Every structure is written in C-alpha cells, then in structure tokens.
Simulated assay, not measured.
Amino acid sequence: MHKINIGLSEEQRRGVCDLLNRDLADAYLLLIKTKKFHWDVIGPQFRTLHELWEEHYETLTETIDALAERIRQLGFYPVGSAEGFLKMASIKEENQEIPTATAMVEKLVYDHELIIRNLREHIDQCSEQYHDEGTADFLTGLMEGHEEMAWMLRSFLEGESVQADDVGVRKEPVSATN
C-alpha cells in the first residue's frame, strides 16, 4: 500500500475517520427512519410529508456516500454493517409502533438536531485536535444540510396543521355575506 502523505499523520487520520464513521452511522439510521416514516405516514398531511421525506432520504443517501468516500480518501474503511451502525450511532432505532404523522416529524427533528450538535463537536475536533480543516469544512457542509432539513420539519410543526376531527375548526355557519 502506498503511504498517504497529505500532511496528516496516521493517528490524525484515524481519529478523523472515527468521527466520520460515527456520522456515517447516524446518517444511516436516520435514512432508515426517514424511509420507514415515508412508507408509513397516513392522514391529511400524507402527500406533503411523503414527498418531503423522499427529498430528505435522497439527500441522506448522497450524504452517506460522501461520508464513506471521505473515509476512503483518508485511507481507512467505512463501517458497513447494521451491527456496526448500531454500535457507533448516537441515534436510536425506532420501535415497531407507528407514530402519528406529527410524532414522526417530531422524532425526525430530534434526530436531525442531535446530528447537528454532534457535527458541531466533530468540526471543532477535526480543526483543533486533528488539524484537518478539509474534513472540518466537509462536515460544515453536511451540518448545513441537516440544519435545512430540521428547519423544514420544524416549520411543519409550527404551522397550522389540517385537523381531520374538526379540532380547532371554526364552527360558525358560513353565509353568503361572509
């Protein structure tokens, strides 16, 4: 194997790749959860959420590939098993119960925000501890993507949702003059 000579020691690259593998594991579990919710969502928000989550899992798929390739660029191998993902991830697997659409959104907001907090720490570690500004910049881009997805999901929660059971619906009769 050709020795990698990019200005980072093997120890620095190994430390960075450990962080990247943790981010990869979180992204994979978030992808699984997003796909599952995409399949299972029901109710008046079905189409909106179904389409939003399709966009999100496509973005997450690209993120996963980019993380794995960054690990390879640094001379190591990405985690690639369900067991490995579960061991390294900070995100927890979803149980088998099917939550309401709103609860699904809340769970995904929580996970995106957890990933954002982790990425902030990893960016600092890449810069300060491992002196790898390239990976710090790479992770900053990933963090911004999660910030956007979390914002979209929070906006859904903050908006007025459609109520199927007439909760919060105006009960006044509508007349021709209204």
Rank of each mutant, 00 (worst) to 15 (best):
Y77E: 13
F76S: 09
M152A: 04
L139Q: 08
Q12I: 03
E93S: 01
G43A: 02
K87I: 13
Y130F: 13
T135L: 02
E148L: 12
P99R: 01
V167E: 13
M149T: 15
V162Q: 05
I115K: 03
M149W: 11
K107D: 13
A150C: 03
Q129C: 06
E113N: 12
W53Y: 08
S81I: 04
A82D: 07
A150D: 03
D111M: 07
F156C: 00
E62F: 03
I116K: 00
H122P: 10
D132V: 11
Y57I: 04
E69F: 05
E113W: 06
I6Q: 10
E172R: 08
M88K: 12
L139P: 11
H50R: 00
T100C: 09
I71T: 04
T63N: 14
K36Q: 10
I123T: 09
Q45K: 08
F156W: 04
Q129L: 09
L157M: 04
D65A: 04
Q129E: 10
I71F: 05
E93P: 03
E55K: 00
L119F: 15
S127K: 06
T135K: 01
E144T: 15
A25V: 04
L114F: 05
F76L: 11
A101C: 10
K3L: 15
R117C: 09
E158C: 02
F85K: 00
V109L: 03
E69V: 03
P173E: 10
S161C: 05
L142F: 11
L114P: 05
Q73E: 13
K36E: 07
G7W: 07
L157S: 01
E94F: 03
A101L: 07
E121P: 07
V109T: 11
M88C: 12
E54L: 01
T34F: 05
E83R: 15
G43L: 01
A82H: 08
L52F: 03
N21V: 08
I98T: 13
L52N: 02
Q96W: 12
L139G: 12
M152W: 09
A176Y: 15
